[in-house]
Amino acid sequence: MQIKLDNSVDKFAGEIESLSGFNVYDCYQCGKCTAGCPVAQFTDESPTKLLRLIQLNQKDQVLKSKTPYLCATCNTCSGRCPMQIDVTKIMETIRIYAKKNHIKPPVQEVNTFSDVFLDSVHSGGRLFEFGMTLNYNLKNMTPFLNAQLAPAMLKVGKLSFIRQKTKNKKRLKDIFDKSDYFEPKEEVSKKEH
């Protein structure tokens, strides 16, 4: 991998810092987050390396990485980081940053799953699991994915065809219309880089 160092732009690291509320330069590359990460073996960049790429403002590399999408937001890394960096929050921040800026997600399936899940909630206030799964398979062009579970689920009554909806339509509309990608945060105390 080739890394172009550009010290004049402290942009990406700075952006991630102010959006996540954590100073990425606090990371000293100890590797603890990666050691406990359940999905590290499935990802391209380890959490540790992703932090390093952010420090070096390697925006394209970071946004191309599958890691923030395969991240299960289990919070193991955040609980163990000796510098109290909320690594999970950094992963989320990258995903939301890409979404906000219409950058093509490197793991389309995870993105589609989130979309169909939220579409279902948006339209009824409660998740309609059956409808969501159908929608997911349609959008993903995988009509039979997870279909082997369906007959057994049906048998034990875990596939519900009844759609529950909430009554307060205005509340639901407001929540979906007005919610922003990022919550407002206090400025991160600037540290010597």
Binding site: S114, D115, R126, T166, L172, E183
Partner: peptide, 22 residues
């Protein structure tokens, strides 16, 4: 009364404020 979905993981990984408001 009239509870709505908490948004689960898709909520807070799509929009922070959605993940809180739900």
């Amino acid at each position: 009364e009239d509870w709505n979905c908490c948004g689960a993981t898709p909520g807070h990984t799509t929009k922070e404020e959605l993940g809180l408001a739900l």
